[in-house]
Design a protein around this nucleic acid. Structure first.
Lengths: 276, 276
DNA sequence: CGTTCGATTGAATGTATTCAATGGATGTGG
DNA sequence: CCACATCCATTGAATACATTCAATCGAACG
């Protein structure tokens, strides 16, 4: 909607420009109010304050950098502050590219909160673009969760993840290539708006076509053809890491997109989304 | 493994034969020790006792009967005691059969526990076969979850669901038809063993080929061809509602199956699984 | 005995993959 | 500044995979 602060410009993430605040004493100076967006932005203020106070570290990651591997015990959870991260599964079948991205995370998402009740994860986690993340020791989060309301709020975050998983299963299982890519773009459009990473009908999408293939279960070549089709139809363009939605209604129509599964807060005051 | 009690025979579920115990006074007579299997079987005994005491109703459902629809507020969660249930998404695209089963539940699974932190669900829930379910008021579960350990245990159950969701996304997105169906059968094999619904290398699988199509994102016709291929290769047979695994190793091999995502308990004493 | 439901098969079509090649953009070193 | 390498997008052609339509078949059921 409105113009955005400098750190959210479309051209080049400002990762390098953000001061990595040295670990201070008082805890909650590691995170700012700007980090309270997107999914964590839905957490009540008092919970957010407590959570941000137990942030043990803010870390910068380069592009395509691995955060954790499947099976290893995890003791911290990461909140994505800037950039894109992915969770992916790689199979043991003899396929050439037996890898699928099963989740993509935007700023405001907890990337591996599933690991808290599970202790270990079944998938790998890595960055897609350069990223800034905040780490929280599980012990500290568990201490916060003695409050039942807070426990439920964090549980809810992971349940929205699960709903998105279901939608992705549906996308991979039932949608045709064109609808599938359109659907993915609709979702990213909405989620990037939720975390305030957008300027009008454009938002940063620093993904290669092979990344989109990995997300939608298609081949890179076919993604290319579908993108051209979407472009030629005047629906949307992705160029130089920026997605431009030209006709949101039609794009959603061919995707059959219904945002209900994202469980957006009902009140328009809670987050800055007007027209969905 | 060993022979099973009458109520778990492969031939025909004994749903109709089970006495629907009239709602008694003392609560936990609605559920028996036999119901403490599969995923809920992993819950600690004391939690299981408390949970079973707040069971408000045990209900019988016929085949293809709807339990809840997407969007409606839910106040209870259902534990599946016998039979199969499915969660499914239906899209708005103009496809002939725009429906996909995004989760299939076996006895011992909470079918809609995701609805507790979410309040409403993004998908429909229905039975596949006739089923017996136990209902638990959310209020009562919340009361139990003042104990942090218990809250975490229930959260964990939903996180295993999420892991299965991810695996299904992978299956639909990356696996070829043959591997996909093989993978599905491997998963059902294992989960039916976990809840003790098996006799040797056979387990009840009362699904039509169109159900398997709905689960794997294929057409019914193609499922038929794949099943024939698996049968001709001597890997497994599904006939009259019973799956017969002839060569588990080879079946897992062509599926690239690794059961890690099911988060089975490590100790062999915790559940009756010997060879995985 | 006819009906229905599900499994099975064939044939034609459509959709997506794979292989291979080109081209633009960017970056590097001489 | 040019030669060269790299990375990614793009396109064509051949092939593989899966769907759709249509028909048959067997078992179960009234």
């Amino acid at each position: 909607m409105m113009a955005m602060e400098p750190r959210h410009t479309l051209e080049g993430s400002s990762i390098g420009a953000v001061n990595p605040v040295p670990n201070g004493r008082t805890g909650h100076n590691l995170l700012t109010k700007d980090d309270h967006v997107g999914m964590v932005g839905q957490l009540p203020d008092d919970l957010w304050r407590q959570v941000s106070e137990v942030c043990s570290e803010v870390r910068m990651l380069g592009p395509r950098e691995e955060l954790s591997k499947a099976g290893e015990p995890i003791t911290h959870s990461a909140l994505l502050l800037d950039g894109l991260m992915a969770r992916y599964l790689s199979g043991t079948t003899g396929l050439s590219d037996n890898l699928l991205t099963v989740a993509l995370h935007v700023p405001g998402d907890f990337v591996d909160l599933h690991g808290l009740p599970l202790g270990r994860l079944d998938h790998d986690v890595r960055t897609v673009t350069a990223a800034r993340i905040a780490l929280f020791p599980h012990e500290a989060l568990e201490a916060i969760m003695v409050n039942t309301e807070y426990a439920r709020a964090l549980w809810r975050l992971t349940m929205v993840d699960a709903a998105i998983h279901r939608h992705w299963t549906y996308r991979c299982g039932r949608l045709r290539a064109l609808a599938s890519v359109a659907d993915f773009l609709c979702e990213m459009d909405l989620r990037m708006r939720m975390c305030d990473r957008h300027e009008g009908d454009r938002f940063p999408l620093k993904l290669m076509q092979s990344d989109i293939a990995e997300v939608s279960g298609l081949s890179t070549v076919h993604v290319n053809r579908v993108m051209k089709e979407l472009r030629d139809a005047g629906l949307c363009t992705v160029k130089d890491g920026v997605a431009h939605i030209h006709d949101r209604d039609k794009l959603r129509q061919i995707a059959g997109f219904d945002p209900g599964y994202l469980y957006l807060p009902a009140s328009p005051s809670a987050n800055p989304l007007n027209g969905l």
